[in-house]
Simulated assay, not measured.
Amino acid sequence: MKKQILFIHGGGEGGYEADTKLADSLRKELGDAYEVLNPEIHFNDTLPDFGWLKQIGKEISLVKEEIILAGHSFGASMLLKYLSENQIPKKIDGLFLIAAPYWHGDEAWKKGIKLHNSFTDSIPKDIPIFLYQCEDDEVVPLAHLEFYVQNLPQAIVRRISSGGHQFNNDLSLVAKDIKSL
C-alpha cells in the first residue's frame, strides 16, 4: 500500500495553483511508493479560521491509517494549529512545515488562526517534525522560523540559502526527508 501524504497548500489568491507545482515536485521525487494528496482548501472569510481547520480535519479523516502531513506557508501554519487543537486517531509518520508563518499581533482577523500560547503541549511528542525555510523568502520572514525553532526544539531544521517563498518549485529536500522516515 502506498504511503499517503496530505499536502496542504498556501493561502492567498492563486495559492492552490502556485502550490500544485510544489505537490507535483513531491510526487516526482517520491515516486510510486507514495501518494501525494493535494486537495484545494477554500477560504470562507466569514469564519475566524477562514474555514480551514474543518476542511483539514475532513481531509485527514479521508486518509487510510497512517499519514504524513506536509504544508506550505498558510497551509503549514494551519496544519500546526489543527494538530495543536485536535487529536488525530491515525498514526502520523511525520510533519513537514514549509515556510510556515507565525501569526501574532492583536488584529481581529488573526484571532482564528493564531496558535495558543501552549500549543507545543498538545503536539504529540513522537511525531518527527521538519521545518524548512529559504533564507531569501520574500513572504515569510526568517524570524518566524526562529520562533518555531525555539518552540519546537525536537524539530529538524532545514535552512536553504535560496529558492524564495516557493522553493523554486523544488521540494526534493523534503522528499528526501520523507523517504528517511
Rank of each mutant, 00 (worst) to 15 (best):
residue 106 D to N: 14
residue 81 K to S: 11
residue 80 L to K: 12
residue 101 P to R: 15
residue 108 A to H: 11
residue 87 Q to Y: 02
residue 100 A to Q: 13
residue 107 E to G: 10
residue 97 L to T: 00
residue 92 I to W: 07
residue 92 I to N: 08
residue 94 G to D: 02
residue 108 A to K: 15
residue 84 S to N: 11
residue 99 A to E: 08
residue 91 K to I: 03
residue 97 L to H: 00
residue 77 S to F: 08
residue 101 P to E: 15
residue 93 D to R: 08
residue 83 L to G: 02
residue 86 N to K: 12
residue 107 E to N: 12
residue 77 S to L: 10
residue 77 S to I: 10
residue 80 L to S: 07
residue 96 F to W: 03
residue 107 E to W: 05
residue 81 K to L: 15
residue 108 A to F: 08
residue 98 I to G: 05
residue 90 K to F: 03
residue 85 E to L: 13
residue 98 I to E: 03
residue 107 E to S: 09
residue 90 K to C: 07
residue 88 I to Q: 10
residue 99 A to K: 11
residue 95 L to D: 01
residue 96 F to Q: 01
residue 99 A to F: 10
residue 79 L to F: 07
residue 99 A to W: 12
residue 106 D to F: 04
residue 92 I to Q: 06
residue 98 I to M: 08
residue 97 L to E: 00
residue 90 K to S: 15
residue 108 A to E: 15
residue 80 L to I: 06
residue 82 Y to K: 06
residue 89 P to K: 12
residue 85 E to A: 12
residue 83 L to E: 02
residue 105 G to P: 07
residue 87 Q to T: 11
residue 91 K to E: 09
residue 97 L to C: 02
residue 78 M to L: 14
residue 86 N to E: 11
residue 96 F to N: 01
residue 94 G to E: 01
residue 100 A to F: 03
residue 106 D to S: 10
residue 93 D to K: 13
residue 91 K to F: 00
residue 83 L to P: 01
residue 83 L to M: 11
residue 87 Q to L: 10
residue 92 I to H: 05
residue 87 Q to N: 12
residue 89 P to D: 15
residue 77 S to C: 12
residue 88 I to P: 08
residue 83 L to F: 02
residue 103 W to K: 15
residue 84 S to Y: 05
residue 103 W to C: 05
residue 96 F to K: 00
residue 79 L to C: 08
residue 106 D to L: 05
residue 87 Q to C: 04
residue 103 W to R: 15
residue 106 D to R: 05
residue 95 L to N: 02
residue 88 I to V: 15
residue 95 L to W: 00
residue 93 D to N: 12
residue 87 Q to A: 09
residue 103 W to M: 13
residue 100 A to N: 14
residue 108 A to Q: 15
residue 82 Y to I: 04
residue 103 W to S: 09
residue 98 I to W: 04
residue 86 N to S: 09
residue 85 E to N: 12
residue 91 K to W: 00
residue 99 A to L: 10
residue 86 N to T: 10
residue 97 L to V: 00
residue 87 Q to P: 00
residue 94 G to S: 05
residue 79 L to W: 06
residue 83 L to W: 01
residue 79 L to H: 06
residue 84 S to M: 10
residue 106 D to Q: 11
residue 94 G to V: 00
residue 102 Y to G: 03
residue 105 G to N: 05
residue 86 N to Q: 13
residue 107 E to V: 02
residue 107 E to R: 14
residue 91 K to H: 03
residue 93 D to W: 03
residue 87 Q to S: 13
residue 83 L to N: 02
residue 98 I to A: 06
residue 84 S to P: 07
residue 94 G to I: 00
residue 95 L to H: 02
residue 80 L to F: 04
